[in-house]
Amino acid sequence: MSLELFLLLGAALFSIGLFGALTQQSIVMLMMGLELMLGGIIVGAAAVWHYIAPAAADAQVLVVLAVTVMAVEMAMGFAVVTALFRSREVDLTDMAAELKE
């Protein structure tokens, strides 16, 4: 176990999540990609706390921030999907973009 290994794990999760967020057409799947990216950030922040500055609580605050962002992203994402679906029966990003034109 070392700082580099934890950060590499975080980077891997972040990249996988980015791939999902870029490729998936379904809005719900896209949000899953965003969740994975935030998971990578959580691992990185926790590792920085443990290996670099365990005396300060700032990295822990960063974890709290990432967890809150996850919750907000999830709630807003589902609310937007609900609003889109209600007005246009759409659940894919491309369809939503087409209807705008």
Partner: peptide
């Protein structure tokens, strides 16, 4: 991910 955070000693988070 939660397990890794536990492993790093951040029990509550």
């Amino acid at each position: 991910v939660g397990g890794e955070v536990l492993l790093l000693g951040l029990d509550y988070l």
